[in-house]
Amino acid sequence: MRLKNRHVLGWLEASPLALVLLLFLVAPIVMIVIVSFWGATEFSIYPAFQFDNYEFLFGSPVTYRVFLATLKYAFITWALTLAIGFTVAYFLAFHVRSLTMQIALFLVCTIPFWTSNIIRMISWIPFLGRNGIANQTLISWGVIDEPLEWLLYSDFAVILAFVHLYTLFMVVPIFNTMMRIDKSLLEAARDNGASGLQTLVHVILPLTKPGIMIGTIFVVTLVMGDFITVRFMSGSQRANVGRLISNDIGLLQYPSAAATAVVLLCTVLIVIAILLRFVNIRKEL
């Protein structure tokens, strides 16, 4: 009897969260999946069960090109944010000795987040433009004679904005796991004659894996779901999956947008599943 009570209590305790997830996570996704099989005319959508949307999606070479571009953005941004994020976190965790200083410097990292995402992105545009500060400075230094055209409205600009926007998402979890590394392990490595590099590769890196993985998941999902950064920084000249979806929505093609969203969701889930094969986050947290 008592056991049964505990059983009920457990269910009760879990139910608020389960309900919230059901209402705000599962239900919308189910809805999107359902709508992705519907049909659309120019100004309305009608319930149906047809594979037209998917057929068009998988039948168009544009889809593959755009998914490839999205993965490309995600991979390059990931590599750069990881390199920068790891370095910053390493500096904060192991080079800065006092805790007060660590916290102060960490807060400095978050300062850009006091303004909106969009503003941080758009402020790059006048900076990188043909007659922008970057080009003017380079010309006045005599480094270049003609303004560099590829600074703005290019893949370079898109990735620059992504890295700028999302590096902190890498710094925070990596810094967090590094702070939890037992310092005596580093001392032991040193006592056993390991060089700085060997300590880094064989001790610190394996121990920060969960942090890296969490940061990776943040960055990859953010980049793959983005559409506004790509639109502004490429001057609408490049496309990623997010832009395909937003274009469809703008043109009232909700079912086709839903189908693209479903495929994108599956892609992201597969990517994350692969990542989780490398590190068991739950075990190491």
Binding site: I125, P126, G129, R130, N131, G132, R231, G235, S236, Q237
Partner: peptide, 20 residues
């Protein structure tokens, strides 16, 4: 051929005014 595409009024103004 194209520097950018624009979607809103302001974007078209900025592209032209900045000499892009």
């Amino acid at each position: 051929q194209f520097r950018a595409f624009w979607k809103t009024f302001d974007e078209s103004v900025n592209l032209m005014a900045s000499g892009e």
